Amino acid sequence: MTGRDVHILSAASALPGPAVDNAALARRFGMDPLWEQWVEAFIGTRSRHLALDLESGRLTDTLADLAERAGRRALEAAGLAPSDVDAVVLGTATPDRLMPATVNVVADRLGIDQVRSFQLQSGCSGAVQALDVARQILLSGDGRRVLVLGGDVIARFYDLAVDLKRTAPAELVNYVLFGDAAGAAVLSTEPAPGSARVRALFTRLVGLGREPGAVLEWYSPSDLAGGELAPPASEDYKAIEEQVPALAEEVLKELLDTAGWRPEDVDLLLPPQLSGRMTGVISKRLALPTAEDVSVVAEAGNSGNAIVLLQLERALAGLLRPGRRAVGISIESSKWIKSGFALEGN
């Protein structure tokens, strides 16, 4: 029955400034051409968008700036006004402040009021968690339309004075792996032309006994007065390379079982978007025989909680036609959350 279904009506994105390629990063940080070749070969990300001016160190866009633009575009694409929204949910690892919550700042800018709002603090799977919360709101019957937001501004953690030649790999990788962006999607109990029906969606914490694969710190005045601090951002890239593909396989199996699909029924794959190289490795391992990859990471970088919504935007822009099927997979590596969704074009 249609009233028990949830549909994604639209998705949109916002990227800060022009793309920054690997050559530009190499020049800014005084790295030689061999470093640029290393990034291409071992990371596989060609460019990213940064909400930071690399010369001055000035932040050009906040998360609220990007999420506002993405949210406005998603509402316009769905043909909706702010007053049509019954709830707003944001997934992010990098809110602009601890308070006020960035989701509420964005809602205010969009003219949304008198609704429920939620901000989920999470790594890459936060956008899928936000989709899950929105879906549960709609399935409960307490609302007809929910605006989902996801994004991160990771460049704010860059130390532009750092000597990358002396930087440990766990920190160095952050300067090439990530990009900044925000995305948005509108979910509804009512389908529309070009929308997609949610056939399955889940998120699950699987971090018991696992060491964090990624860490973002925040500091208080007492921390700053206490001597040497941990790096603001670090990655255990080896642990991520080892665990994400296996978790992605688990997610795919559960999605197919829930939707009642066979591997050959899947037309589009929205794979985990850690880096260009890792995305290729994971897609090959998932071995969906007829699925086309929907990938944005090589051009936009790993933009955290925006990446799934950027993939959705591309899928809904003509790829996920009526009757076609898509699966999306996202793995959060800070304390390990596996998540995914299955969609069918309306």
Score class of each variant (00 low, 15 high):
residue 280 G to C: 05
residue 35 W to A: 13
residue 118 F to L: 14
residue 110 L to V: 07
residue 244 V to S: 09
residue 204 R to I: 03
residue 40 E to Q: 12
residue 81 A to G: 14
residue 116 R to N: 06
residue 50 L to H: 02
residue 300 A to L: 08
residue 156 R to Q: 11
residue 263 P to D: 07
residue 266 V to R: 00
residue 341 F to P: 00
residue 147 L to S: 05
residue 67 A to G: 09
residue 274 L to F: 12
residue 186 V to P: 07
residue 244 V to L: 14
residue 18 P to H: 02
residue 167 T to R: 09
residue 59 L to S: 09
residue 214 A to S: 12
residue 311 Q to E: 12
residue 94 T to M: 04
residue 165 K to L: 06
residue 288 L to A: 05
residue 170 A to W: 00
residue 103 V to C: 08
residue 335 K to H: 08
residue 134 A to L: 09
residue 176 V to A: 15
residue 222 S to D: 15
residue 23 A to E: 14
residue 311 Q to L: 05
residue 39 V to N: 06
residue 282 I to D: 10
residue 344 E to L: 06
residue 163 D to L: 08
residue 109 R to W: 05
residue 19 A to L: 13
residue 18 P to Q: 03
residue 319 L to P: 01
residue 168 A to D: 13
residue 191 P to W: 00
residue 153 V to D: 11
residue 346 N to A: 13
residue 214 A to N: 00
residue 127 A to L: 07
residue 96 D to A: 11
residue 326 A to T: 01
residue 294 V to E: 08
residue 88 V to F: 05
residue 66 L to I: 13
residue 145 R to N: 14
residue 202 F to Y: 12
residue 321 R to D: 13
residue 83 S to P: 06
residue 208 L to E: 15
residue 105 V to W: 02
residue 222 S to I: 11
residue 86 D to S: 11
residue 36 E to M: 08
residue 20 V to E: 05
residue 261 W to T: 06
residue 220 S to N: 04
residue 1 M to E: 12
residue 166 R to I: 02
residue 163 D to V: 07
residue 129 Q to M: 15
residue 159 D to H: 06
residue 191 P to F: 00
residue 223 D to N: 13
residue 91 G to M: 10
residue 331 I to T: 04
residue 207 G to R: 02
residue 44 G to I: 07
residue 279 T to L: 15
residue 249 E to G: 15
residue 149 L to D: 07
residue 28 R to H: 09
residue 283 S to L: 04
residue 140 S to L: 08
residue 73 R to T: 02
residue 134 A to S: 08
residue 88 V to A: 03
residue 124 C to R: 03
residue 143 G to D: 12
residue 56 S to I: 10
residue 6 V to T: 13
residue 173 V to W: 03
residue 213 G to P: 08
residue 73 R to V: 00
residue 24 A to Y: 05
residue 122 S to K: 07
residue 134 A to M: 05
residue 319 L to K: 14
residue 51 A to M: 11
residue 227 G to T: 04
residue 157 F to E: 09
residue 223 D to L: 11
residue 161 A to D: 15
residue 140 S to P: 06
residue 99 M to K: 01
residue 58 R to A: 15
residue 280 G to R: 04
residue 39 V to I: 14
residue 46 R to D: 14
residue 45 T to E: 03
residue 274 L to C: 12
residue 231 P to W: 04
residue 93 A to H: 04
residue 49 H to G: 06
residue 298 A to D: 10
residue 219 Y to V: 11
residue 201 L to E: 02
residue 215 V to P: 00
residue 52 L to N: 04
residue 239 A to W: 02
residue 206 V to C: 13
residue 285 R to M: 10
residue 72 R to N: 04
residue 39 V to S: 10
residue 175 Y to F: 12
residue 178 F to D: 08
residue 43 I to L: 12
residue 172 L to V: 00
residue 57 G to T: 10
residue 52 L to F: 02
residue 95 P to Q: 01
residue 225 A to P: 02
residue 334 S to V: 01
residue 233 A to K: 01
